[in-house]
Amino acid sequence: MVKNNIQQFCFPASVPEALRLMAKLKAKAVVVAGGTRHTRSIAPQVETVVDISDLPLKFIKADRSGLRIGALCTISDLEKSPLLAGWAGGVIAQTAGLSSNALARGMGTVGGNVCRAHPYNHMPPVFLALDAAAVYSEGGREKSVPFARLLEPGFMRELGHRCLLTELRVPAATKSWSGATARFALTPSQWESTAHCVAALDLQGGTVRRAALAAAALLPRAARLPKAEAALTGKPVSEETAWAASKAAVFELEELTGRAAAKAYACEVAGVLLRRTILEACHG
């Protein structure tokens, strides 16, 4: 048994009820959804576990504004969703399928995966590439921020016990995009990747109208690669343009990693992965 000071478990049935508990208990409370790694790292000041698994935040649906994914969907739900299989070339479902193993995918939630924003977590780069928005509830009001804000250091800490991530929204325009994802790790089920890349492309008549490329694992947090995106945008789909974009990505990643020698190999790997994902997104 891991030493901790837990005295109470609460099972709120609604988001307002969960927020009231969090606001009242502040740092003495911790929110647990799927569990996975979180239950093994409870801070010593925590006295109450707020188990939010009963909240009605388990949905995957589409409306006029786009795709809506409830924060309590498991990674496995994303992997198996027919709706996600047909969205942006199935890149969200594909990314979910790369994550860890069947048991962890069945327990871990998408909300936990993106809120923890660990560099190795698999879902942040795909939502970053698809220009998603993070929707959270605070003080009885629903607020939305670009997904990239969620990954900024301190953003979740600043909001702390006042808010709860409720869903992720992906713009409707991305439905017809093409997408692909690839990661490189010691074994397929190993959580820690050397590099993980996502390409989401808006293609029109053999030309890349818009490119969204993201990398993760080798950086402290997932990041978009605007220079590599510029190397693709407006260009015809070809091996050459994919090469040019991957070279730009390696240069960009080397800058982002401070040209650290320890990251040089990971940057090269990311370049290869990115070229593959671009070609896969273009040609299926």
Binding site: F9, V32, T36, T39, S53, L103
Partner: peptide, 13 residues
């Protein structure tokens, strides 16, 4: 299927 080592007993309440 869940990993019973990764969840508190109380979560099964």
């Amino acid at each position: 299927p869940v990993l019973s080592c990764m969840m508190f007993a109380a979560q099964a309440h």
